[in-house]
Design a protein around this nucleic acid. Sequence first.
DNA 1: TTGTAGGCGTTATCAC
DNA 2: GTGATAACGCCTACAA
Lengths: 343, 343
Amino acid sequence: MEQVTIKEVAKLCGVGISTVSRAINNHPDINEETKKKIMDTIKKYNYVPNNSARNLKRTDSHTIAVLVKEISNPFWGKALEIISREAMERNYSIVLQNIQDNENEVEVALQLEKEKRLTGIVFLGGMFNYDVERLRQLTVPFVLSGSGKELPNVSEKCAIITSDGEKESFAMVDYLCRCGHKLIALLTTSDEAGLGKVHLEGYIRALEKNGIAYDRNLVVKIVGNGRTYTVENGYQATMELLQSGLDFTCIYAISDTFAIGACRAVFDSGKRVPEDYSIAGSDGLDIGEYYRPSITTTFKHREKIAEESIKALLDMVEGKDAERVRMFQGKLVERESTRRLEE
Amino acid sequence: MEQVTIKEVAKLCGVGISTVSRAINNHPDINEETKKKIMDTIKKYNYVPNNSARNLKRTDSHTIAVLVKEISNPFWGKALEIISREAMERNYSIVLQNIQDNENEVEVALQLEKEKRLTGIVFLGGMFNYDVERLRQLTVPFVLSGSGKELPNVSEKCAIITSDGEKESFAMVDYLCRCGHKLIALLTTSDEAGLGKVHLEGYIRALEKNGIAYDRNLVVKIVGNGRTYTVENGYQATMELLQSGLDFTCIYAISDTFAIGACRAVFDSGKRVPEDYSIAGSDGLDIGEYYRPSITTTFKHREKIAEESIKALLDMVEGKDAERVRMFQGKLVERESTRRLEE
DNA sequence: TTGTAGGCGTTATCAC
DNA sequence: GTGATAACGCCTACAA
């Protein structure tokens, strides 16, 4: 039950501590035979190096922190898997950290960086109103991965890999306008800087382009209490909208979960999708494809984004040249939940 | 940019290192004034204690590891939130660790325990064929939280807080039988010990009780490649089932995600739910309530389970008496996706 | 109430 | 190729 230490391994093998250390860390100047003997006893006695002690010395824990805004959001599932796998393959370990919607991820990161000896940080899905001053105080490389429009150019230790939320929002709303919709409600979030803001901007720009007046009554800002992007929130918001007596023919929801909730609200009100209301989402969650009606959405290349994010980070960490700013544009997928309005 | 250490804080304040340490750790025997002065400079210089060094001394990092089987499964969202919150409140920090379906969580835990100086471990959703021998080698308290039937009684450092998967499965299949279904297909997973097995047992027991012969052709074992509990997997499996030419009137899927995929497969085959096929799920995911048709399911009390799990763990850690074995029974929720067969 | 010193388990820098 | 030994930053007797 006692913890085996490097000292004991050394004693057991009749060698010095540093020799064991060399064996563990694959140093070149060590006799193959002694190395083998050492590795054998290590296995036999089930010795695992104490990471705390290692980190204390090393000044680099080989650990990547991944800060995820609302980890319970199904949007992240695949991305997390990709990032973990890639990190493991390149021999880094991952610390996952959930960021609640009232937390500031940069502050959390600053803490974390000091507490552990982080090698790098991935911000998954943060807001884009980062406090640049604070961000600069991070000493390790980091990557901002998510959706945005304006990109804070922080430093050469920072990569920005995103989906262009504003353009995507514009494209979708423009598409809906071209389908003949003139009264398009927006289901968005209440943040003043994150996804909600970006989507709102794209929405307004598309309306302008199509010569449609912006009616702020048609914009519903969902306030999450802990979890924001839930189906239930979309349902509630849509119910209120339907009961408000406002006129509209179409709902654009900034997440597929909202869109699904919206669909159900429409059904529960005795109406149909898309016959009575067209409903479009955003994200490209699996579930949107299997819902009935399947959800017209913007498919975000989040696997690609995850891959590029971790790659950019590790490249920065390892001093390789990395493409540090990339913006992907999601793909509009027409499905069953929207329709062209007959004239 | 330099890391501030306790030494420098001490120098800055003109006191000894141990005084600073006392201030940080809320020791009683310290002058209030000096403490205040120290805390001020700490804040001013943005000092954060190095956790590695602390852990090296402490032998207790105040850290709880949460090992989650397939973290991308939406099933865990709320549970993770609850566990994190509760842990924070009681002043522990959380290390999240994803367990892929080909990984053995006990082995990961053993590693982790040595690497970090864990205070406790939560296994979220593991299999119930844990290697008890290995489990016993864990030196810190831990809690097995998930679904199961047989419970390995390991030690007094172990709590087991679960949902009774076998009984739940039995109850659902029994219910379906009582609705008049005699040919019930089962969508389950291929594991020989986890959820899949437990549900299969309940399924068989219910068939027996209702005098229905067990036909193994009606059991589809889904094999995940990385992620298992996806809507897509449910869709594929059901498509195969439908094209097999086998006769059945009902599908029992061991997760709501499977059930939703199954529904879509039925629709895409030009059939209806529940008119042509009744489909039941399990878990009680939010989405099942909003799907159309809404999914008949077993609502598992996962928030309760999460609460009790972290509570039991922390109580064990702090030496309080804790109820160490609890089994919750999920609640059968009748919804739109199943129907009573007319005679 | 406070300061000094030793040690936690490693790694890295030396000598040998 | 190998073995002492000094850090790494913190906590805790023990002494003052």
